[in-house]
Simulated scan of single mutants.
Amino acid sequence: MTSSPAARMDESKLSLEARELLSMRDDVFDHWEASVRAEIKGAAELIGPALTDNLPSLYENLAEAISPGIARQTATENSTAAMAHGSERARLTCFGPHEVLREYQLFRDAIREVSRSHKVAWPDAVWAAISRSVEIASCEALEEYAATHERTRRKVAAALSHDMRAPLSVMKNGAQLVCLTDDSALARRSAEKICRHADRLESMMCDLLDALTVLREETPPLILSNFDMLDLASDVAHQFSDGDGGPFLVVGDSVEGHWCAPAMRRALENLVSNALKHGTAGEVQITTRERRGRLSLSVHNHGRPIPESKRERIFGYLNRHQGDGVLGWGIGLSFVRSVAESHGGSAEVDSSAAAGTTFTIEVPVDCRPFVKHATKCAQSAI
C-alpha cells in the first residue's frame, strides 16, 4: 500500500487542445461562477463548493472527449456525472429546470470566452465536440433533476400516506364508541380525541401537499467531526488487506474536512467490497482529491464494465446487479448514494472496458453548511 500523486487521467494520451483546456480550468470556473451568480436566481446565496458541484469531473471528461487517443466520444459517455449534477441541483438548490439548463449554457460560454482570452485556436471539430458534450450533459442533468423530484415526492407521499392510517384508525374507533355509548362523559372524551387526531391528520395532509412540490429531501442525522480523508482511506485499505483482500493502492491528497466518519467509512467499505467482488484479480485503487472546495473520494478496479443501461439503476434501493456471475449491489450502493447526498454531495460511476470502473463520492470539504440534521463531535471516529 503506497501513496503517490497519481490521478485517474492519463494526460500523456491527451491532445494539445485537451491539455490547453485543462490548463485554463480555474479561469473557466471562475468565469462561469461569476456568470451564474450574476444571472441565475438563488445562485448568489450558494457557497462555492455547492455551486461548482461536480462540474470539474465533467470538465476532465470533456478533455478526454476531445482527445482522439482516448475512447470517450462525449463527456458523458461511460459516466453518470451529469446525472449526479442534476440530482444535486434538485435536492440542494432552489434551481428550476430553466436554471439548470442555463448554467450549462453559461458553462459552454465560459470555455469559449476564456479560450479567447488565452488566445488558443481550436479547430471547428473541437468546438463541435465541446458543444455536443455540453448539450448531452444538460439533457441528462435535466432528466435526473426531474427524476429526483419525482422520487422525493413518491417517497415522502408514501410515508405520510402510511402514517395517516394511525389517526384515521383512532378517529374511526372514537366515532364508533360515541355511537354506541350512553355515557356522556365517555362520549365527550372520545369526541375530544377525535378532534385532536383530526388536527393531526390535517397537519399531515399539509405535509403531504408540500411533499408534492418538495425541492429537498430530508437527510438522516450525522455525527460530524474533523478528520483527514486520506487517513480514513488508508485505514480501510489496511482493514481489507488484513483480510487478504488486496493489493491496494491509496493515492491522492491529504484532504482534511468535516464529515461523518462512521458513515463515510461504511460507504467506502461498500465501494471497496464491491471492487473486490466484481473486479478482476488485480489492484484496487482508492483516491482522495480536493477540487475547488470539494472532496472527490473514488474507488477504481479493473474488470467487466457495467452496462450503460444499468449504470444509474445500480444506485437504486434493492437493485441487484448480476456481474461476472456475482449477484450483488442490492443495498450497498443505495447506501453509498444516501451518504453522499446526506453530506450535500452525490455519487457517480464511470465504467468502460478500457478504463475499468470507478465509483466516486463527491462532497463538500466542509459539509456543515449543507447538512440539515447533524451532531457535532470534537473527536474524529476514524
Rank of each mutant, 00 (worst) to 15 (best):
F315R: 02
S133M: 05
D242R: 12
A198S: 14
G282N: 04
W32L: 05
P369Q: 10
S352K: 08
K376W: 15
H162F: 12
S254W: 07
A340N: 12
S234I: 06
D109K: 15
H300A: 09
E60D: 13
R292C: 11
C139I: 09
Q285L: 10
C179N: 11
E202S: 13
C206H: 11
L318C: 15
L215W: 05
T360V: 11
S352G: 01
S234H: 08
P167L: 04
S334W: 15
D324A: 14
R200P: 00
P56Y: 09
P123F: 11
A157M: 12
V214T: 14
R25K: 14
L249Y: 08
H258A: 07
T375Y: 12
E64D: 03
D53Y: 07
G252M: 13
S133Y: 02
C195D: 13
L58M: 14
A82P: 03
A90K: 05
S190P: 02
H31C: 09
P5Q: 03
M205G: 05
T93D: 03
R292V: 05
H31K: 12
S4E: 06
I306E: 03
S346C: 15
Y59I: 12
N226R: 14
L318N: 15
G356F: 03
P97L: 00
K41N: 09
A175R: 11
E192L: 15
V126S: 07
R196I: 09
S169Y: 10
P307N: 08
N270T: 06
L180H: 13
G325H: 00
G323R: 09
F107Q: 00
T357F: 01
N54Y: 07
L16W: 12
V250I: 11
S4F: 03
A353Q: 09
V365W: 04
T76C: 14
M1R: 08
A187Y: 01
E256W: 00
L62C: 08
V299F: 00
E140Q: 15
N78P: 00
L249P: 00
T288R: 07
T360Q: 06
P56Q: 05
E202Y: 06
L180Q: 15
G174C: 08
D53V: 05
A175N: 07
L142Q: 03
A378F: 09
M264Y: 00
V336H: 11
D244W: 04
R265Y: 02
S57F: 04
M1V: 10
A129E: 04
V349R: 01
